[in-house]
Nucleic acid binder design. Structure first.
Lengths: 109, 109
DNA sequence: GGATTGCGTAACGAATCGGTTACGTGTAGA
DNA sequence: TCTACACGTAACCGATTCGTTACGCAATCC
């Protein structure tokens, strides 16, 4: 159970879809979430939900027999504002790229 | 060769470190990159570099016997400005959370 | 030409992943 | 209490991941 961080959470496309659903609907029962997927069975979704919970991007609450899942956007925003921001700020500087292409590979010691 | 997207690229902590190095140094030889890791051997890093290249977040160029790697920030910025932005915009609305805690779980049909 | 350097690849193994079916458990309702 | 429902978990499977060591190949240096 090593790398249970938000990067792991969003690495899988099915989990990203789950997060999309929760973002759009606010909160959803486990079954409601599962019924949105033809690509995976209910137990499969259940395990994705557990992973998402372990990664801290989702929280669950019992309500009778229902299990209500809710999004916790904080870890995602931390990625957005933290690690990823440093790369998003980089301009793709096509001038520099062009010069590289014209002049050929930069010689180094 | 299924999911070779930028989400896959950044899922692994070693690959994130490689991207950090390239962001800080502009461009690096494969060996220079590998020498920064005690946790992985040179062939291991070489394969990470291949994955990063397949994910489109890195480009490589031959220069003599050196292989020069360079960052391509565009896919990362696309994640930042695209999918992740929708979650980053969500405020964590602690008032709503408090109300939920006070009133108990929201009853649903 | 022969040795050295830089780097990729093949082959292998342990661990994890993502899916399945079958089952167990707690709550709701008759 | 008996039944139905919602959900999680166990067990199993094939595929992938991430690390290793051994090797091959092209370029450079003497």
């Amino acid at each position: 159970m090593s790398a249970r961080d938000a990067f792991t959470a969003i690495a899988d496309p099915t989990r990203r879809e789950i997060l999309d659903l929760l973002r759009d609907h606010g909160e959803l029962m486990a079954g409601e979430i599962a019924s949105n997927f033809a690509s995976a069975s209910r137990p499969g979704i259940s395990r994705h939900l557990r992973v998402l919970k372990e990664c801290g991007v989702v929280s669950a609450e019992r309500d009778g027999q229902a299990q209500i899942y809710r999004l916790n956007p904080r870890p995602l925003r931390e990625i957005h504002d933290g690690w990823l921001a440093a790369f998003a700020r980089m301009q793709v500087d096509s001038l520099k790229a062009l010069r590289r292409r014209v002049e050929g590979p930069k010689r180094r010691a």
